[in-house]
């Protein structure tokens, strides 16, 4: 891929490739989306605009849980179950770990060994590093491209330890939280905010000598979970058990997701949810863009330092300092 401007002709090739389900071009389009170069991002935007009519038909499933809960294994088994039923599954991983000097290691596929080689599956691990906002944009756009390429299930995996799970929850139709029994008290440090967003909670690794513990945990969590996430008119978020290893309970989870979808569709909720998500996305892009634009301004950068010092020394009040720096906005815009 050249680093120069990407021509209209190339863009058309990308679009045709995506729409015809060409795996190589799909992969390269995602690279464009992920690129830090302006020219690539611009090309990606153009591509997205034109494939938009072909998106939106997939089931969008988000999965979170603490490291080791079994997310990747779950996706392996669940994904295989879906492809066996004739679906085409795309898997995306969101992992905005703090940027470090080094690159990242992406070993996701070693845990999705069978799905990785399935011709009806497409798994794209993304390098970590970068801001949450950046990762969120990339994942959303990748999701759309995969839909246009004919994938009818999109599964997004995210580690449940930071902010990313909230972001993922706002881009999917169904948000599943995976837990394990007995790995600590109550709801295992999963933040309340995440549980509020969950459409279901599943206790994984309910197999072998762990079955009883998983069942007990299910009852225990149910009460706590419903306090945090009370039933609505349409949906009562269930607490389930499953085993990603033996596949026990996975068909039940599929049922739950499909029932949820049916009910949401019947009540017009799915459409509403997606519209709201789109607006939310729009607003977050605007906010992010504003911030970026503002803080990149040389004058702002310069003033900021001295203002902070003044506030610390107590020579200027925070209110007037803010007023002062924001007044710069008027100059930038004009």
């Amino acid at each position: 891929m050249s680093i120069d401007q990407i021509s209209e002709k190339q863009i058309k090739e990308y679009i045709d490739g995506i729409l015809s389900g060409d795996r190589r071009i799909l992969a390269k389009s995602i690279t464009l989306i992920e690129s830090t170069l302006k020219a690539h991002q611009e090309a990606a935007r153009k591509i997205l605009d034109r494939i938009l009519p072909f998106t939106g038909k997939a089931v969008r499933l988000g999965i979170t849980g603490l490291p080791g809960a079994g997310k990747s294994t779950f996706i392996e088994s669940f994904g295989k179950m879906l492809t066996a039923r004739g679906h085409r599954v795309a898997v995306l991983a969101v992992d905005p770990s703090s940027p470090r000097t080094g690159g990242s290691i992406m070993a996701d596929k070693t845990r999705m060994e069978k799905l990785a080689v399935d011709p009806n599956a497409f798994i794209r691990p993304s390098a970590s590093g970068g801001t949450l906002g950046g990762v969120a944009r990339k994942t959303r756009e990748t999701m759309l491209i995969c839909e246009a390429a004919g994938f009818d299930w999109i599964i997004v995996e995210t580690v449940g330890v930071g902010q990313s799970e909230v972001t993922v929850a706002t881009m999917v139709d169904f948000f599943l939280v995976l837990m394990i029994a007995g790995a600590g008290d109550e709801l295992q440090g999963i933040k309340k905010g995440v549980l509020e967003l969950a459409d279901a909670l599943a206790i994984n690794k309910a197999d072998g000598d762990n079955i009883e513990r998983a069942k007990a945990a299910r009852q225990q969590y149910e009460i706590a979970f419903h306090l945090i996430n009370p039933p609505t008119r349409i949906w009562t978020p269930p607490v389930l058990t499953c085993s990603a290893l033996t596949m026990e309970g996975l068909d039940r989870i599929l049922d739950v997701i499909l029932t949820h979808r049916r009910k949401m569709t019947e009540h017009g909720e799915l459409e509403r949810k997606r519209k709201a998500q789109n607006l939310e996305w729009f607003w977050s892009l605007v906010r992010e863009g504003l911030e970026l634009w503002f803080f990149q301004d040389e004058e702002v950068k310069k003033n900021l330092m001295s203002l902070i010092k003044d506030i610390e020394e107590g020579t200027v009040s925070p209110t007037s300092a803010a007023e002062h720096i924001l007044s710069r906005l008027r100059h930038i815009s004009s």
Partner: peptide, 16 residues
């Protein structure tokens, strides 16, 4: 794999 990541490569590891 581990050292290449330390050196700034993005490394994909395949299953065996």
């Amino acid at each position: 794999a581990s050292a290449y990541a330390d050196l700034g490569f993005d490394v994909d590891l395949s299953p065996m």
